[in-house]
């Protein structure tokens, strides 16, 4: 059986790739994709520990995470639409009017 550390490292790697994407890209759509990576990194952890503890709760819960991701994308796409309509661009660094 693959040691749990490997899964965790994989999960951490996926998570950090997602974070990296968020930090270095400006396109809002890429943001959404990066967020998917973050969520799935969490899913890897859930499934790995589910197997590790011999209990199905983690696996079941990862399904809910997927559903949540779907909801998030639906809203996210809507937000991106509004963003595009108001700023004629999907560059998140341009939409800086909602600060002080």
């Amino acid at each position: 059986m693959v040691p749990i550390e490997y899964y965790l490292l994989l999960s951490a790697a996926v998570f950090c790739i997602g974070v990296f994407g968020i930090l270095t890209r400006k396109n809002a759509l890429l943001f959404l994709m990066s967020v998917e990576l973050l969520l799935n990194a969490a899913n890897i952890n859930l499934v790995a520990f589910s197997r590790f503890h011999g209990n199905l709760t983690g696996q079941t819960f990862s399904l809910f995470t997927l559903a949540l991701a779907a909801a998030e994308v639906a809203i996210g796409i809507g937000i991106i639409l509004v963003l595009y309509r108001n700023f004629a661009d999907v560059d998140v660094t341009k939409a800086t009017t909602m600060r002080w």
Partner: peptide, 14 residues
């Protein structure tokens, strides 16, 4: 689309 890669170091550090 490419911003500065510098903030990415934070992800690496994480």
């Amino acid at each position: 689309d490419r911003g500065s890669l510098l903030p990415g170091l934070a992800a690496v550090a994480l």
